[in-house]
Computed example of a mutant assay.
Amino acid sequence: MNNESKPIIECENLVKIYKTEEIEVVALQGLDLIVEEGELMAIIGNSGSGKSTLLNMIGALDRPSAGKLYVDGKDLFKLTEKQMAFYKRDTVGFVWQNNARNLIPYLTALENIELAMNIAGNKNKKRALELLEMVQLSHRKNNKLNQLSGGEQQRIAISIALSNNPRILLADEPTGAVDTKTADQILDLFRVLNSTQKLTIVIVTHDRTISKKVDRVVAIRDGRTSSEFIRKKSYAEELEELEKGIVANAGEETHEELAVIDKSGRLQIPKEYIEAIGIKGKNKIKVELEGKRIILVSPNSVK
């Protein structure tokens, strides 16, 4: 992130509760997150961690239950239904794992993009061709979906997500239905769009290997941000080193993991750490201050 960037997404103590007559599920329970304008970042977490719920909140597909949520200077708690519709049309674009949510099979690649633009009130055919060129598929403009590979279909879906010139691109498991090589191509495309279009991109995934392609990864566990993985060197610096023939040591970590402390001073400790000091299944831990270090130990441990 550069020093001139500013937050485009701000979540504070964000809560989402789903209720039925019989059960109540807390999907987000006090989540804090800031995304800077122009970032390319990923949100990772296991199934049920709350990551897709968060994406739906940011994209105005669902409303939060409590907390604060500002996106592009807008308070999403205060928007009317009409304002929400304009927000979804003008501010965000979506890419899904299942590209059937973006694409219509009996239309050509170009017709799919033109339809999305028509819905948004834009009938500029030149712009539709530019979007195809942006994802390097202008030569496939007259092909229908059954004539395109899975990766090509996903790139068409990305161009459709860009058809409303969004400030933020939200991608939910965008590489989940393609092979590793195609996934790398899609992530490289995100990097190009982020760099050339100054587009803020938030990727939600369970795949930790995506961290190699982004500068920051936020991990969510049990509806809260638990840690962040910060790139030690920028992706551009790594590419520059490769061009100069400088090869990183095998197994060298590209990111540093930092635990997140929320505004109430709460800290999520990784499960493997809890198990390592023998307090699995317990809800109490001894906290000691040793110089400038905070030490967490099992209450039953003996020094």
Rank of each mutant, 00 (worst) to 15 (best):
A248P: 07
Q268A: 14
F229E: 11
V214R: 01
S227M: 10
N194C: 12
V202I: 15
T225Y: 00
R167T: 13
L169P: 01
R266Q: 11
T175I: 10
I230Q: 01
V218R: 00
E252Y: 04
L187Y: 03
G265K: 10
D222Y: 07
L199W: 01
E237S: 13
A250L: 11
G251Q: 08
Q197E: 15
D172S: 10
A236S: 13
D188N: 14
F229M: 14
L199F: 04
E238S: 05
L170S: 01
D179Q: 06
Y235K: 08
A177L: 06
A248S: 12
L239V: 14
L242A: 12
L242H: 05
Q185D: 11
V217W: 02
N194F: 09
E253N: 12
K232W: 02
L170P: 00
E253T: 11
R208H: 08
R191V: 09
D188A: 15
P166W: 02
A248D: 11
T196L: 08
D172Y: 02
V217I: 14
T182Q: 03
E240D: 13
L199Y: 02
S234G: 08
V178I: 15
L170Y: 05
I269V: 15
E173V: 13
E243C: 03
A250C: 00
L242T: 07
L242S: 07
V202C: 07
D262C: 06
I186M: 08
E173I: 07
V178G: 02
K233M: 10
I210M: 06
T200W: 05
K213M: 11
E257L: 07
L258D: 01
V218L: 08
E253V: 12
E256F: 04
E238C: 02
D172W: 04
L170R: 01
L239R: 13
K244R: 14
D184N: 10
I230S: 00
I201N: 01
V218K: 00
D172I: 10
Q185I: 14
E240H: 07
H255D: 09
A250N: 07
E253S: 12
I246F: 05
D215A: 13
R167I: 04
V247P: 00
T175D: 02
G251A: 10
I220K: 05
Y235I: 15
L199R: 00
R266P: 00
N249K: 14
I261Q: 13
K198L: 09
D207L: 09
V204F: 01
V218M: 12
L239W: 02
D207Y: 06
V192Q: 08
A259W: 08
N165P: 01
S226V: 14
E257S: 11
V260R: 02
D179E: 08
K212G: 08
V260L: 07
E252D: 12
A183Y: 01
P174W: 05
D172T: 12
S226N: 06
A219L: 06
L169W: 05
R221V: 11
E253F: 10
Y235R: 11
K212T: 12
S234W: 08
T175G: 04
K233A: 09
E252L: 13
E241W: 04
I203V: 15
V192C: 03
L170D: 01
